Deep mutational scan, measured.
Amino acid sequence: MSIQHFRVALIPFFAAFCLPVFAHPETLVKVKDAEDQLGARVGYIELDLNSGKILESFRPEERFPMMSTFKVLLCGAVLSRVDAGQEQLGRRIHYSQNDLVEYSPVTEKHLTDGMTVRELCSAAITMSDNTAANLLLTTIGGPKELTAFLHNMGDHVTRLDRWEPELNEAIPNDERDTTMPAAMATTLRKLLTGELLTLASRQQLIDWMEADKVAGPLLRSALPAGWFIADKSGAGERGSRGIIAALGPDGKPSRIVVIYTTGSQATMDERNRQIAEIGASLIKHW
Rank of each mutant, 00 (worst) to 15 (best):
P253H: 08
R162N: 12
P60D: 13
S233R: 00
A211C: 09
V82Y: 08
T158H: 00
L120T: 04
Q204I: 14
R92Q: 11
I259Q: 01
E175F: 07
T193G: 13
K252W: 07
L146G: 04
T126K: 08
E35W: 01
I140F: 14
N130W: 00
K30C: 11
G114F: 07
T131F: 12
M180R: 10
T27S: 14
P224V: 04
L167T: 11
L38M: 08
L55W: 09
Q97T: 09
V214D: 03
L205F: 05
L135K: 05
T187W: 05
I283T: 13
L191I: 09
D207M: 09
R41I: 13
A123E: 04
L73A: 13
W286G: 02
L111H: 12
G90I: 12
A222Q: 07
Y260C: 05
T262C: 09
L218A: 03
G242V: 01
G226E: 10
N134I: 03
Y95W: 13
H151P: 04
Q37T: 06
G279K: 01
H110P: 04
L247A: 06
K32A: 11
E102N: 11
D155Q: 00
L146R: 01
T138D: 11
K284D: 11
S221I: 14
G248F: 00
L120I: 10
P181L: 03
G39N: 08
T158N: 02
H94Q: 11
P65S: 05
F58I: 13
E26S: 12
Q265R: 07
T193E: 07
I259T: 05
P172N: 08
W208A: 04
M67N: 12
I206S: 10
S104H: 05
D207S: 11
P65L: 03
H24T: 09
W163Q: 09
F70S: 11
G216N: 06
E237W: 14
A77M: 12
K71E: 00
G251K: 15
G76S: 08
E237T: 12
M268D: 10
G263I: 04
H94I: 06
E87Q: 14
Y44Q: 00
T158M: 02
G216F: 14
R41F: 06
A200W: 12
L218D: 03
E175I: 14
D161N: 08
L38A: 10
E108K: 09
S233A: 07
H110Y: 15
K284E: 13
G85Y: 06
I45P: 01
I229W: 01
K144N: 11
D161R: 03
S57N: 09
G279N: 04
Q203G: 06
L111N: 15
V257E: 01
D174V: 04
T179C: 05
K32Y: 12
I140R: 03
R189E: 12
G154N: 09
T131H: 04
S96M: 12
A211P: 04
L120H: 03
I54A: 14
I275N: 03
P105T: 15
A225Q: 08
R202N: 06
Q203C: 05
R189C: 09
E35L: 01
L167R: 01
Q88E: 15
E145F: 12
R41V: 14
A225N: 14
S128W: 01
G43K: 01
P172L: 14
V29A: 11
L120C: 06
M180L: 09
R241H: 04
R241I: 03
T131A: 06
S201Y: 05
Y44F: 06
E166W: 12
W208E: 03
R255K: 06
G141C: 10
A170Q: 13
I229S: 02
M66S: 04
L192E: 02
T198K: 09
Q274G: 11
I54H: 15
Q86F: 15
R91H: 08
A170K: 13
